[in-house]
């Protein structure tokens, strides 16, 4: 079971002028993957992910979820949206209830679950994203940016989705808040085996968390691979308005200067190991 996207095309119509936003996108996203999507602003990332839960309807091509074509007339889109949860940019702008707990209850209640189940789910979801209990009955508007963001994500989690799509979930969070949120997503992926699809502008976060990265440019997927494979294309990424993590550039530079290090490195941890090993080899005289 998986998400299968086959030759997806999508156009915007703007006063008679047609712009092709998605061009012939074909991709398979297996269950339980931590998938990153990068691309400059306007490359089609957000448009693409909105097709995955049926918010946008394909111009041509097909999106299959668990083997079913989601554009079929009798396909239950409401059910799809409870299975494929989408957290928009700045989700905290969508908080509206009088307290945190009520806000998180909204989604599962809408699914028609009985009240007790709704509350259990809301409780579990808030716990999963690390919101402390003393904040459950606070007004959402009293929380800090990072806390609000988490409450909004809990609102989607409480629907118990199989796939969680997050569009720029860390924008505006401080570095610690960013790390905490990403750690929690990685944990959810491992413990509940849900698929995480993360749209982000932070190459470092992608390198640290994603198992696979899709790079989008002008509506197409232009690179698809592990962080190591993708970030080896630093020149092409730069041409697309992206970059590799700084640590990848460091290793390239070291290699250029004659250090015997592997240059396909994307995390600090690996870089440290590589550099220390190269010193050790030198001391050992080989």
């Amino acid at each position: 079971m998986a998400i299968i996207v086959n030759k997806l095309n999508y156009n915007y119509n703007d006063g008679g002028k047609t712009t092709q936003v998605l061009k012939d996108i074909s991709v398979v996203i297996p269950d339980g993957q931590f998938l990153g999507i990068i691309g400059h602003t306007g490359s089609g990332k957000s448009t693409f992910v909105q097709h995955l839960n049926g918010l946008l309807k394909a111009g041509s091509g097909t999106v299959y979820y668990n083997g079913e074509d989601i554009s079929d007339k009798d396909y239950d889109l409401k059910k799809l949206r409870s299975k494929v949860g989408l957290v928009f940019q700045y989700p905290e702008h969508q908080l509206f209830e009088v307290d945190v707990f009520k806000d998180v209850c909204f989604g599962p209640r809408n699914l028609g679950l009985e009240e007790k189940k709704v509350q259990l789910r809301a409780f579990a979801a808030l716990k999963q994203v690390g919101v402390p209990e003393e904040l459950f009955y606070a007004s959402p508007f009293e929380l800090s940016g990072g806390q609000k963001r988490r409450v909004a994500i809990a609102g989607v989690l409480a629907m118990e989705p199989e796939v969680l799509i997050l569009d720029e979930p860390t924008a505006g969070l401080d570095p610690k808040g960013r790390d905490e949120l990403l750690e929690q997503l990685a944990k959810l992926q491992k413990e509940r085996e849900i698929t995480i699809i993360l749209v982000s502008h932070s190459m470092e976060d992608m390198a640290n968390y994603a198992e696979r990265i899709l790079v989008m440019d002008q509506g197409s997927i232009v690179l698809d691979g592990t962080p190591k494979e993708v970030f080896a294309h630093d020149k092409e990424l730069e041409e697309m308005g992206l970059a590799s993590p700084q640590v990848t550039y460091i290793m390239k530079e070291l290699k250029k200067r004659g250090f015997s290090v592997e240059e396909k490195v994307t995390t600090i941890e690996e870089a440290k190991k590589e550099i220390l090993n190269s010193f050790k080899r030198k001391v050992a005289g080989c």
Partner: peptide
Amino acid sequence: RLDVPQVTLLAHELKKAGV
């Protein structure tokens, strides 16, 4: 709750490891 640039962090880690 803050951070340093990756190059600063790498240098710091290497220093801690004795470089």
